[in-house]
Write a protein that binds this DNA or RNA. Structure first.
Length: 89
DNA sequence: AAGTAAGAAATTT
DNA sequence: AAATTTCTTACTT
């Protein structure tokens, strides 16, 4: 299972990593930061295969509606992390 | 290389 | 809420 991190993934990780603790961003927001507005889905894909799990706070990325959407580790995990950061509380 | 399948979204009606 | 659209990666041929 070797996958080479592409430029797209790299940008996604960088953008998500920039998210300050206690705040959430939307997939569209990240997609726009990397210059691929509209690729929100692709962003989710990159996070799903994120080889930088502890580096990339994918749990800080939520949908535009404020819903958690999906999560590789489970939505419960995301909810807990966000609650701890006070992002949704 | 080309085509197909799937993925955690967003937008529009 | 349902249907449609859009982007990228991975697998298969």
């Amino acid at each position: 299972m070797k996958r080479a991190p592409t430029a797209f993934e790299r940008k996604v990780y960088a953008a998500v990593r920039r998210i300050p603790r206690g705040q959430t961003r939307t997939y569209a927001w990240v997609a726009r930061q990397i210059g691929k507005a509209g690729a929100a889905r692709a962003v989710g894909n990159a996070l799903n295969r994120n080889p930088y799990a502890p580096q990339v706070p994918c749990h800080r990325v939520v949908r535009s509606d404020g819903s958690l959407g999906g999560f590789a580790q489970g939505p419960a995990r995301k909810r807990m992390l966000l609650r701890r950061e006070g992002a949704i509380c």
